[in-house]
Design a protein around this nucleic acid. Structure first.
Lengths: 242, 242
DNA sequence: TTCAGCCCGATTGTATACAAAATGGATTGG
DNA sequence: CCAATCCATTTTGTATACAATCGGGCTGAA
């Protein structure tokens, strides 16, 4: 059966409305967003406006527009007179993000169980297969991305509402958390819990689906090596001087 | 007892980080936001950049920055080459917003019941009294705002996490919904359901609090006159030409 | 050597100038 | 009288210029 949806790792604002009314700024947003999700831009990386402008052949105006949007989505932070940096979520942020995800995804799972159909399930099984394949090949980043896509695809069963949008943002931030605190092999939803969840969804058992999702998210969170990093992104200079 | 928090109607992004790294842009955001919440700027109103610039004595650069942020928060929509307009949520939007609120606020209520203390409860009772007073005096707008503040204050018991931020955004959008579809007297949480909810919270009964909150939001939603407006904001010219 | 203070380069913040697009009205033809 | 078209005006989109600020390195003295 042909899949009739493709779930790229979607930026939170991708559909929310043009960034500054500009398609070009949105493309820049998109490029930076993807780079962060792929960990080509690691947490803490500085994003210099003029450099970005040169890369994308655009003026700082558009770059700033994109950076602002990324800041609102908690992908980068903008510090006044200092510039934009890829966000480095603290442990507290990570807790908050996963707590929020549990609330939102449990509710969406319940709802999705009521609404789903065979085609949707097939789509999700396809994503699952892709994810497994990526894991088997050791393509960790791709697996993480596909894992996120799975969660978003479940949400999208309920339509593109506010909760789904919000979840997109939380999933993006989760990628940053995993980039910072994720252990090499685990943390990529590798427990085949997605499969069990999908079974519950297919059976239309919303309660079970919600419970499995909650547990799944707990597992991901617990697999993080949260102690291994200091809470705040460290600026060596500040630390040594203070 | 002195209240130690003041809950102005907070903009979703107010704390999330400087808008474009600029305090001035944030002030503009704030002014427009407040005007929309107060219904001084009605849904559909056009926001011309240069006009705003003149009003705030700022260049279009800063105005655009603020408008972009407002767009990301669904307070205004930006249409390419046409400009920014105060959002006019459709009936579908309204459903989505209140569904999301039920999910988020039920969870936050449960959590708040575990964390709350006497001081917080006193704060909330204060807000409740203000709201009642405003209603008694017939100050409808103020009552609506205070009602929103109440909901946010409950969320804030759980801290300023992602869910609370998200709720801020939903409450803002609810104000727009009420502006469009609210009936004169009702819709302002006037049922004293806040008081009952607060009792549950004080008793530490999270389940009851969550249930009361859900029902309360259902009531607000049902009190809207959702049929009385066309779904999409109408542009007369387009309608007549097409 | 080490620290304080100062200066300069790099980078961000803001305003403005110019280009592109849409809107609304006038004009022309039916 | 109406409709369609064209043009001027308004408004947005983008680039660029200039100002403000920050950080790093240099200098100089203790």
């Amino acid at each position: 059966m042909q899949r009739f949806t493709t779930f790229e790792t979607a930026a939170p604002t991708a559909r929310a409305g043009a960034i500054g009314g500009s398609a070009r700024a949105e493309a820049i947003y998109r490029s930076i967003f993807d780079a962060v999700m792929d960990q080509r831009l690691p947490p803490g990386a500085k994003l210099v406006e003029e450099q970005l402008g040169a890369i994308f052949e655009a003026s700082r105006t558009l770059v700033r527009s994109a950076l602002q949007a990324l800041a609102q989505d908690h992908i980068v932070t903008i510090e006044r007179h200092r510039g934009a940096f890829v966000c480095a979520p603290t442990v507290a942020d990570a807790e908050d993000i996963f707590f929020s995800r549990k609330v939102v995804e449990a509710a969406l799972a319940r709802e999705a169980a009521r609404r789903t159909d065979a085609a949707r399930i097939a789509d999700l099984r396809g994503l699952l297969a892709d994810e497994r394949e990526a894991l088997r090949r050791g393509e960790r980043r791709k697996a993480i991305r596909l894992s996120g896509d799975f969660h978003i695809a479940v949400a999208a069963i309920c339509g593109e509402g506010a909760l789904t949008q919000f979840l997109r943002s939380l999933v993006s931030r989760s990628s940053l958390v995993i980039a910072l605190y994720g252990r090499s092999a685990a943390s990529a939803c590798g427990h085949d819990e997605h499969a069990a969840f999908l079974d519950a969804l297919e059976a239309g058992d919303g309660e079970r689906a919600a419970r499995l999702m909650t547990e799944h998210l707990d597992h991901i969170f617990r697999d993080l090596a949260l102690a291994e990093r200091s809470e705040a992104p460290v600026d060596i200079r500040l630390v040594l001087r203070a």
